[in-house]
Design a protein around this nucleic acid. Sequence first.
DNA 1: GCTTGACCCTGACGCCGCGTCAGGCTGCAG
DNA 2: CTGCAGCCTGACGCGGCGTCAGGGTCAAGC
Lengths: 250, 250
Amino acid sequence: MNVGEVAALAGVTVRTLHHYDRIGLLSPSGRTAAGYRQYSAADLDRLHQVLLYRELGFSLEDVATLLDAPDADPEAHLRRQHRLLRDRLERTRAMVAAVEKEMEARSMGISLTPEERFEVFGDWLPEEYEAEAEEKWGDTDAWAQSQRRTRSYSKNDWVRIKAEGDDIERRFAAALQSGAAPDSAEAMDLAEEHRQQITRNFYDCPPAMHAGLGRMYVEDERFTAHYEQIAPGLAQYVSTAVQANAARQG
Amino acid sequence: MNVGEVAALAGVTVRTLHHYDRIGLLSPSGRTAAGYRQYSAADLDRLHQVLLYRELGFSLEDVATLLDAPDADPEAHLRRQHRLLRDRLERTRAMVAAVEKEMEARSMGISLTPEERFEVFGDWLPEEYEAEAEEKWGDTDAWAQSQRRTRSYSKNDWVRIKAEGDDIERRFAAALQSGAAPDSAEAMDLAEEHRQQITRNFYDCPPAMHAGLGRMYVEDERFTAHYEQIAPGLAQYVSTAVQANAARQG
DNA sequence: GCTTGACCCTGACGCCGCGTCAGGCTGCAG
DNA sequence: CTGCAGCCTGACGCGGCGTCAGGGTCAAGC
């Protein structure tokens, strides 16, 4: 077979085969008088192995080393490839699960920590990383600390936190129905309580950031929906109160 | 956070972050007076998306295009990533099967034809090509439709969707209190309704995936808390019901 | 026998996604 | 105030090809 046919069969370009020839990874076993590359069945076998290893992320140099190892029997390669492929399967499954988790979390209004989201990346060694992280900046970096904070919450903590949140929302709703203006002291106090609750339980939330959240409550339909479900007009009410409070706090 | 911390968290090198900044793919939202890059939580979110798409084989340029698309809401990205990951899962499974077939053939002294062996590579175009195709002619494709589904939700839609979800949760709680077993027909029917609701409103959720979600409800404290707040024991109840239903659906 | 168009050859340059110095500034711990 | 870890900006290099350019080869059809 000459290059074009092999390329079509294997799903690679002619240039790739040229390249593999040039670097000695896969040289066709023969040439025609005119210099055309002639690939044998054995060459195809080798190409197949090359492509599998390449797909698995090996550099071409490493692939060459693997395939040219003196004790290289085909079965061993197959077993190794099989193992590597199953590792990848696992990893992909984990990534799918992570995305599903994120979707589900979003649909429930829960937000995941960055650490959780990045978990699936890198061959990061959990133990080492945790230890190193704590050593290096665990205590100095407030942000990372707050991440670790939410991570260590138990089920009961989460129940309590959610109850706290619901409580404030109910009191906001009551204030709204009582006719208190969203920029009244009462509403602003509630907003401040809300802000401090976020700071205690999740992350440091200065007034400016809080105001940003407030804006979001009316700009993002999903947050709006969350509040509108409790009481009509509540999204706008909370949003205004939060921003008024932020202005008050300076 | 500054570069080193972000790099460690995400499992990439500082150089990579520099590169992403230089090419405008991910520029930190701030700098210190001394010029140190400062990454915000939003920046981390974006980085996460970037890494996922990169992992899926998109070029950095394409990633930028995707992430900067004006109508690109996070949910759409999640759905697309989910789909691509599942494609990849399929493909990896096929490769594992191919290797197993080859091993089996060898152990029986049979040798496969080149076409058979390269089969799994020949079909390999789907991921890239299909993704591109969908970008180009996405209007006619079913997936684009499903994508537009949530993107175009209005505030009222979100209110309705959330109400639907709350309704099912309440009925689950009622079933729990009535003493119906989590693997009773009643509970399983509710689980099925839950699954179909997800499929209607968010993404295609076959029983197997649903079972995975069910497991998460008892494994992740935050999801557990969500259900425990409605009624004690509800997390475990829903989890069991969902998995029983998945088993029932085959 | 001659043309034509598909296919092949060998350079050589280019691009992407970083790795890897080099040379110099910054920030904080002791 | 002195280290030393960490940050900055170039600048060069490399792996794995893509992509011409310039030119030979082969089988088909006239």
